[in-house]
Amino acid sequence: MSHALVPTKLEELWAYIAENPEAMLCAGGTDLLVKIRSRSVTPDCLICLERLDDLKGVRFEAGEIIIGALTTHRELLHDPIVQRDLSILASAVQNLGSPPIRNMGTLGGNIVTASPAGDTLAPLYILKARLKIRSKESSRSVPIESFILGPGKVDLRAGEILSEIAINQDSRFTVNHFEKVGRRNALACSVVSMAALMNIAEDNTISEIRLAWGSVGPTIMRFGDVERLLEGRQLTVRGIEDAIRKVQQSVSPIADTRASADYRRDVAGRLLLRLLSYASSR
């Protein structure tokens, strides 16, 4: 690499991008700088985005929660809006990396890195996050599931940046559940993760549920048939056992140094059992 640029204003960013069309963008660098060091990517120029204050912070706007893409994980954890209204995202960020990684890494960085094990992604999928993509001339908005195309692959064209994450709180859920299974709690790449948003009726049936799994396929996986199967079911072992099997049949995990494919498949389904802890006690 030959040089690193640190713009403080968007106009400066657009100028740098125009002058260095091959530059890579760095939104924290906890992943990218590791790849550069191992020479798996070799950019001539790096543009570090962390001083673009316009792309930071959490706010309400027109009924939506807007998160600046350069908001660090630590800032998310301390943000009152995130704590109150996006607790599922907060639980995912709580165990992301380690304290210094959370001081440096950003939500936008985690999204654009598009790792199947990216901790914030499963929550963002079921929160139906929309991503605002900007370039000097234009802006567009895409749902996160169409933005992430595969491992490390996203729908970001030359000259574009991910600027904001928008979450519309159309439905409220009483259960905001996230669990990551890893080899240890800190600095662990997830073996399997599951995010769940759920409402439970008074008779202990599941009235509404959204589910997403990480690390069991090329991108975050959601199964509409599993959600439809569960809605109306009793929140008991008997009520969800066929959904567990269906998840195990539907995921497509790989084996790697962290776990075998069979283990991931098994655990992905069984993570649904955790939801029983929210069952209304009689």
Partner: peptide, 14 residues
């Protein structure tokens, strides 16, 4: 705030 100096570039310290 604690940062990792192995994943920080000189320009970022400005």
């Amino acid at each position: 705030k604690a940062r990792l100096s192995c994943l920080t570039l000189a320009a970022q310290l400005q």
